[in-house]
Nucleic acid binder design. Structure first.
Length: 480
RNA sequence: GUGGCCAUUGUAUAAUGGUUAUUACUUCGGUUUGUGGUACCGACAAUACGGGUUCAAUUCCCGUUGGCCACCCCA
């Protein structure tokens, strides 16, 4: 990870440096404004000439490097397995969308739309934006592709980059990765519970135990009634609220519920609870969801202050937090039901629910844990396995190498190699560095014999193996 | 968007208002030709950018950019 700042260095060459020094050397002691300006201008031009232009990632964006690649692939693989086994189909949608899609669905007045969207004009003047989340895109895709004609509900999963112009922070980036599931076309509470179960178990399979925070914000009608009541209460306590929350009374009163300000927390203790304002149907729905969770043995906490910032949610809302003090402030995922969204975006009235996981945060936790283990001297699991390196020597062997590698690959065998190196010594060094337990050596002699030399890197014992039998021989090594 | 801390090679570091900016690791090459781990030799590689103060700035000051962290918000 970038523990240090990115280096955007303009690299001066040595020659530049020396020229600079001599140009600015104190020999020239004549004090005159004009000469010193001239000196500086000369210095500038010399420097600029030799400066290498370097490029770096934009703020809040980052590379996934080979060092972290393994862990990301592992995360993807777990997500794929879990999502597929619950019957979700893989989908993708474009990163660039019409801006209005998000403005209408997420809602004006939310920070995501008002402050954080990567919004710009396309060449034809239309407003487009980098997607800040996936649910609206998926709803659009459902309508546009006529998925109401598919057996309902349509269950999909995805992963991809989202963009929000936020100030970067621990576990927060401007380009961030989300993976999630959406179930569109079924209004049953079991759908909500299943989604929570998928989210919960995905994280559990990755080795992260979580606690589900859950709440119901009812239907739009429930919520409107509640907001009237809440605003009334807040106005009566206005003078006790924080400055920030005073502004929120009109703009976004629900947000005051989860404020972290001391004053606000005190005021909110007496505030009306949304659960008391749910219609009987909403209440029933919520208790049903909870019963499913109980049966599934998924740990959850009722959190009446959980509201979530996107307008399209209705009834169930939830967030998952790591059951680990070190990371307890970061939501690893969240979601909820959004029964009104498809209709709002121009489709048939269609119930739906979904969740997404913040993969950057998941990876961050996994990486920190791995680093901790490494500090304690434990080898990563990967390095404990047997690894095979292939080395070649001489032109004939070198030319034959690609054939052998492909032959082994078809047998499902992974071999590390560096065909660009010619000296055996250099290849042995490399084999050692990557932690190979065995090295296959193909030289002039072996090409003629139709054999391959197999060296055990620990014992140094070498065996001559017939090329025809090499695949099975290597398989045995890798299985051991 | 607001605030705090920070910025020297790929990584981790040392030093200084004034000769060639330290050291280690990594990378690359070598210590004679078909054998790695150790040892030895060598090479590449940095003061984020812009401006100011100064005879002289990597060092002091300001701005910008970026990083870390918190708020806001969210995943």
């Amino acid at each position: 990870m970038p523990s240090k700042s990115t280096k955007t260095t303009a690299k001066k060459t040595k020659t530049t440096k020396t020229t600079n020094k001599s140009k600015v050397s104190p020999k020239t002691t004549i004090k005159s404004a004009s000469t010193s300006t001239v000196k500086k201008e000369v210095k500038k031009s010399v420097e600029k000439k030799d400066k290498k232009i370097t490029y770096n990632t934009l703020r809040g964006m980052r590379d996934i490097t080979p060092k972290n690649g393994v862990i990301w692939q592992n995360v993807y693989s777990v997500i794929r397995n879990v999502s597929n086994s619950y019957g979700f189909s893989y989908v993708e949608t474009p990163i660039l969308e019409q801006a209005n899609l998000f403005i209408r669905s997420i809602g004006k007045g939310t920070d995501v739309v008002d402050k954080e969207m990567y919004l710009f004009e396309d060449k034809d003047g239309s407003k487009v934006c980098l997607r800040p989340e996936m649910t609206a895109s998926m709803a659009r895709s459902y309508i546009e592709n006529g998925m109401q004609a598919l057996p309902q509900p349509v269950k999909v999963w995805y992963h991809g980059q989202m963009f929000r112009h936020d100030r970067p922070q621990a576990g927060r980036f401007r380009q961030f990765y989300q993976s999630g599931c959406e179930t569109i076309g079924d209004s049953g509470p079991v759908v909500d519970a299943e989604l929570i179960s998928v989210a919960y178990n995905t994280l559990r399979d990755l080795g992260i135990d979580t606690v589900v925070n859950i709440n119901s914000i009812g239907t739009l009608e429930d919520r409107q009634n509640y907001i009237v009541e809440l605003v009334g209460y807040l106005r009566s306590k206005r003078s006790y609220l924080s400055e920030e929350s005073k502004k929120r009374i009109n703009k976004n009163p629900l947000r005051i519920l989860d404020s972290k300000e001391k004053e606000d927390i005190e005021v909110m203790e007496e505030a009306p609870q949304i659960l008391d304002w749910l219609s009987p149907e909403s209440k029933k729905f919520f208790t049903d969801v909870l019963e499913y969770l109980d049966e599934a043995e998924i740990p959850y906490v009722l959190n009446s202050k959980l509201v979530r910032g996107l307008d399209y949610y209705s009834n169930t809302v939830f967030e998952l937090y790591a059951d680990d003090e070190e990371f307890s402030n970061l939501a690893l995922g969240g979601g909820g039901r959004y029964d009104g969204l498809i209709e709002q975006l121009g489709g048939q009235p269609t119930p739906a629910a979904g969740f997404s996981l913040g993969l950057d945060r998941v990876v961050m936790i996994l990486r920190k844990r791995q680093e901790k283990l490494e500090r304690e001297g434990q080898k990563p699991v990967e390095e404990k396995k047997n690894k095979v390196f292939f080395a070649q020597l001489g032109i004939q062997a070198n030319k034959k190498s690609l054939y052998i590698l492909e032959f082994l690959r078809r047998e499902g065998i992974t071999v590390y190699h560096n065909l660009a190196k010619s000296s055996l010594k250099a290849q042995m060094e490399m084999a050692n560095k990557i932690g190979a337990t065995h090295t296959l050596i193909l030289g002039q002699k072996e090409v003629q014999d139709g054999s391959i030399l197999v060296r055990n890197m620990d014992s140094g014992i070498q065996e001559v193996v017939d090329q025809k039998k090499i695949a099975n021989f290597v398989k045995k090594i890798l299985q051991a």
